[in-house]
Design a protein around this nucleic acid. Structure first.
Lengths: 252, 252
DNA sequence: AACCGGCACTTGTTTGAACAAGTTGGTGAT
DNA sequence: ATCACCAACTTGTTCAAACAAGTGCCGGTT
């Protein structure tokens, strides 16, 4: 095994337990072994075991506790960061073939709206990509993305019809590690309607997203419009843990 | 202080630190005191301090670390469970006056769709409430909620125009501690259009929600349709922590 | 001046221990 | 048979200690 393969014990434990639940080895409602038993099985201390359990609890995969032994929850309602950020990776994870038709790659001055999202002055140059995304043969989403110039310039050396921009940028060493997503509904404009094959004015599910580095500098802003009925977003919420999820008044 | 006011140390620590960040005492980018300093200030052990920091990290309020001292993140992108679940409480938290006009409270057999969501047999009786929700004077949302009979029967003793059903049920001792939310876009039907004062066919932001007990038994299913432009949902996502958020293919 | 190594400091990981608090099941008295 | 109580579990909270690994600075060497 390569050195890069090393993961801390509590991480491997988390992954192992998660896989037991999502794979059905521990079906919903199954009474999970006690912490003491897990310590014996994995030869770890109780602190480490609890660290793993706490992570799964936050994902909603483990319920109950306090006196009682906890039970396994509904399988799998969470995605790792990359799967949620990358349309290509997501499509793969659900067994569909992703496709894309690039309509435009352009360097142009940022509009006031885009500039505000990226923390730039209006008029500073950005690189914008307009793509139609497909699931199999079906149009699923229109993607309008604006990149900060330093990152965007890399795209002129990349075939944006060939696959995932996200993983291409990752491989260039770009730090993409935080995302803020705003979800609402809009009426399809002329362009949306033409690309997606729907009536102008019909409802679309819109996700606007600012992706930034670990330190919080914005890298990318995207306006993605999904055909409803093909896609939705699902979120889980618990009394114990705050979810990174809010309902927001627009233009208060 | 009453006994019920007691909270474990790590909880109080979490709340105290969160308030320092959201209140601006520690502005965005501020370098947070080291763990050792926090231990001294709160007279707690390092494990307890780390437990608090870990919670804030998951909320996105603390960034960085590993060698460096971590810094405060963008303020407040999370809501406690109750604020997200209750329209009334949410409206209050943003300084608006919530309103509601009940159109119907009825006991009737569950439709196949509702039955499936609540884990019942189709045709078993449920209690359904149809309400128009307002922000100030403006129509903001149409709410179609179905309650399991045991809980729903309580509503016949409650004035559903007077305020929050959520907090009423809580006060009756009903265990509401988990929520699963599915967000997509739909076209307004005749009823939506009339109640919300929009054109039939215009886009609405829809949130469907199953609320369940800590043990996972469904209590309530709701179909809420928001006027777009008034409300949206915002979610934050990090490389380190899985978010309880997924993109889902509908009717795959 | 530029580079390099080491030191002091930080956070990350792991262990071990102790006590509090909730749940369950059995024992014994009624 | 039923009830009260206790004992043996469970998880929750908190402490203390040690080492690994990453960062930044300072001083010495080149």
């Amino acid at each position: 095994m390569s050195v890069s393969n090393f993961q801390p014990l509590h991480q491997r434990l988390t992954d192992e337990l998660r896989s037991r639940i999502t794979s059905g080895t521990w079906p919903e409602g199954f009474q999970i072994p006690s912490e003491a038993e897990l310590c014996r099985e994995f030869e770890a201390s109780r602190g480490t075991v609890r660290q793993a359990l706490s992570a799964l609890r936050a994902e909603g995969l483990i319920l109950g506790g306090r006196g009682k032994q906890p039970v396994a929850g509904r399988a799998a309602l969470s995605q790792p960061f990359t799967t949620f950020m990358s349309f290509t990776e997501w499509a793969g994870s659900i067994g569909r073939v992703p496709g894309q038709q690039t309509r435009e790659v352009a360097k142009r001055p940022a509009s006031p709206d885009v500039a505000a999202q990226l923390g730039l002055e209006a008029g500073e140059p950005v690189v914008e990509v307009l793509r139609l995304r497909l699931l199999g043969e079906m149009p699923a989403m229109v993607e309008r993305t604006s990149f900060v110039l330093d990152v965007g310039r890399l795209l002129f050396d990349f075939d944006t019809d060939s696959g995932s921009i996200f993983s291409f940028l990752k491989s260039c060493g770009v730090d993409l590690s935080r995302g803020r997503h705003t979800i609402d509904a809009v009426a399809a404009d002329e362009l949306d309607a033409e690309l997606l094959g729907v009536e102008p004015g019909s409802p679309l599910l819109r996700e606007r997203r600012v992706t930034s580095s670990a330190a919080g500098e914005p890298i990318e802003f995207s306006d993605d419009r999904y055909v409803p009925g093909l896609t939705n977003f699902t979120i889980e919420n618990t009394n114990d843990h705050r979810a990174n999820l809010v309902r927001v008044p627009t233009s208060a």
